[in-house]
Computed example of a mutant assay.
Amino acid sequence: MPKKRKKHPKLPNGFGSIRYLGKNRHNCYAVHPPAKIDQLGNVVRSPAICYVDDWIKGFTILTAYKAGTYQPGMERDLSVSPTSDTDTLVSRIIADYSTIKGVESKHPEIKKPTFREVYEQFLKWKFAEGTNYSESTRNNYTAAYTYCAELYDKIFEDLKATELQNFLDKQKGLKKGSLVKILSLFNQMYKYAMFAEIVTERKSQYVRINAVDDEEHGTPFTEHELRILWKNANNPDIQLILIMSYSGWRIGELSGLEVNLKEKYFKGGIKTQAGKGRIVPIHPMIYDFVKTRITADGTLLNMNKVTYRMFRFYPILEKLEISGSPKHTPHDCRHTFSALCEKYSVRENDRKRMLGHSFGSDITNAVYGHRTLEELRSEIEKIKVPFVTNCD
């Protein structure tokens, strides 16, 4: 029975590697310095420092390299003294290696990357040339990253699961959907970091979202607030708020909508089966707003939704002194549409169709309740625009 090769201690991330090349070679161990990351974010094995015939020799060479005392050819003069406690000796050196004086200045490649640096490497790796991820996927990671500013300069490997959990728990002003995106970013960054040998454990697996599902809860604009918006409807940013408020589309659905100006309807949707591919007639009072945006940009939203929320939506409402309690979000436009449908007696089933809500156990309407564009148009046109005077 062939003799099994001895298992040696696992070297820590950033230490380098000792690679076994096979028993038929005299110098059967290749000694490599730490791997590097290329411009595309790929992990590239560094060329071997040397080749030796014994793992302990390789470990000695690697330790000398880390300390900055390695001289080319010194491996030829090394001898291995027999010992019964090699593992203990190696483990003690590994535990102390990061305290070697001047090691980082001699070998900057072992400097531990920050959260920011890992994120930048992750993006290059995730969206390398040849991958087919959508722009929306990239935007989701970008949006989640913008919320993580307090983590940017922290050493990624040193982050604890409790630290990540506390960070998520502190984000009281964010919707659950945004928290889900942040946790997804954490998971993806740890997936990359393990691949790149930056960490040995995916600490994000212990983190959870301690928040209720608030996706379908919000505060519609009041009648008074709608009057203010219509009074200032010459502003393009307010026009988009009114488009969402009189159509029910989520902000994340705007950029991918099919807009038929001739037949005057929207088609699109995301998230649920009931919500995808739904048709919503364009309310006549927002038609000109829609036409202007589509003619100019070919889309209703020509920027990242996070950019719009932070630099357009919130500032314009603050300027108009429309605050809401709690603070209005773009998703409140969807709730406004739902509230307007109810106020003006739009058929409940048609409201569900236009919002993309499921019919639940109502199989009859879910399967057989087909409605024509004109039938939906007659329902949405029940919604009236508040009368605006100079006194409002």
Rank of each mutant, 00 (worst) to 15 (best):
Q165L: 00
G256D: 06
G248S: 01
H224A: 11
T299M: 07
R227Q: 14
Y265G: 11
I209G: 01
K276D: 05
V280N: 12
M189K: 02
K181F: 10
Y190T: 14
G218T: 01
A296Q: 15
R250H: 01
R202Q: 13
L226F: 04
L226D: 03
I270S: 03
K262E: 13
A274Y: 07
L261Q: 03
R202G: 07
A296M: 15
G218V: 00
K191P: 00
P284W: 12
T200D: 09
K291C: 11
E216K: 12
L183W: 03
K175Q: 11
Y265S: 01
T292K: 06
T299Q: 06
P281K: 10
K176H: 08
S247C: 09
V259I: 07
F195K: 07
D213Y: 09
P281S: 05
D169P: 12
D213A: 14
L179T: 12
G277Y: 07
K264R: 15
N166D: 05
D288E: 15
D297C: 03
T292S: 01
M194A: 02
E201S: 09
Q273V: 12
E225W: 01
G298I: 04
H217A: 12
G277M: 12
N260Y: 12
S245D: 13
R208V: 08
H217N: 15
I209P: 02
I209H: 03
F266D: 07
P236E: 10
V280E: 13
I182C: 09
D213L: 12
L159F: 01
Y287W: 11
I270M: 07
P281R: 04
H217M: 13
W230L: 14
N166K: 15
G277A: 12
K170F: 11
F266M: 13
P236K: 09
A296L: 15
P236G: 08
V207Q: 03
D153E: 15
L174M: 06
M244K: 07
N232S: 03
A274E: 13
T200F: 02
I243V: 07
N235W: 06
G256P: 00
E216A: 02
Q273M: 04
S178M: 13
M244R: 04
E223A: 01
T162D: 04
R202F: 00
Q205S: 02
Q165P: 00
L261P: 10
D169R: 14
S204L: 02
